[in-house]
Amino acid sequence: MLDHTGIVVTDLTKARRFYDAIAEALGLATKTNSEQSFLFGRSAEEPIPYLWIGTLRPSYWVEGSRAGLNQMHIAFIADSKQMVDAFYDAALKAGGRDNGPPGPREGAGDYYGAFVLDPDGNNLEACVRGPAAR
């Protein structure tokens, strides 16, 4: 189970615009956490799990680490193919880059997903599985 994870970004304003857009497409929310960070998750009523996004350098980073150096992959659950498509469109309009357009993936069974790179190069995915993916 996931409690939380986090990524470091170089431009908080650019990142917030991007994550606000994909949050809306996925029925999720963002919330300011500090002047240097915000949270991405379900809602204030369901605060966990969440993704911490900020410009602060974590104390646990090894020397030489920086935003985007070690690409992170995060997959978000979508309720429908239409939600995956909305995620992809919102991400591209908000400054993301294509890393695999919406569609089924060979060998994944009933699966429909899309991949984008956020402004710092982290790989984000939205996917739906099962009957809703057909």
Rank of each mutant, 00 (worst) to 15 (best):
A108T: 14
H73A: 03
I7M: 04
R16V: 01
V9N: 02
C127M: 13
A126G: 07
L69D: 07
K93G: 07
G68W: 03
N123D: 05
A90I: 09
A108W: 15
S43E: 13
D85V: 00
R57V: 12
P58S: 07
E106H: 15
M1P: 12
R134Y: 02
A15P: 09
A21D: 10
K93Y: 02
V128C: 09
N33F: 14
G41T: 06
A94S: 11
I74N: 06
R105Q: 09
R42S: 14
R105C: 04
W52G: 15
F76Q: 02
W52C: 14
A75P: 04
L69H: 08
F18Y: 07
L56P: 00
N33L: 12
T5G: 12
V116F: 05
F40L: 11
A15L: 07
Y60A: 15
P119F: 02
E106P: 00
E24W: 02
R129T: 13
S59P: 05
T10H: 11
T55S: 10
R66C: 12
G68I: 04
D110P: 04
R97T: 05
P131D: 00
T30E: 03
N33I: 09
D110C: 01
G95I: 07
A90D: 05
I22G: 01
G6L: 09
G109M: 10
N122E: 07
H73C: 04
I53M: 05
A126D: 05
S34G: 14
L2P: 04
A29T: 06
I22W: 04
A75G: 14
Q36P: 00
N33T: 09
G103S: 06
L39P: 07
L51G: 10
A21H: 14
I48G: 03
A132P: 09
R134S: 06
W52F: 14
E125K: 05
I74V: 13
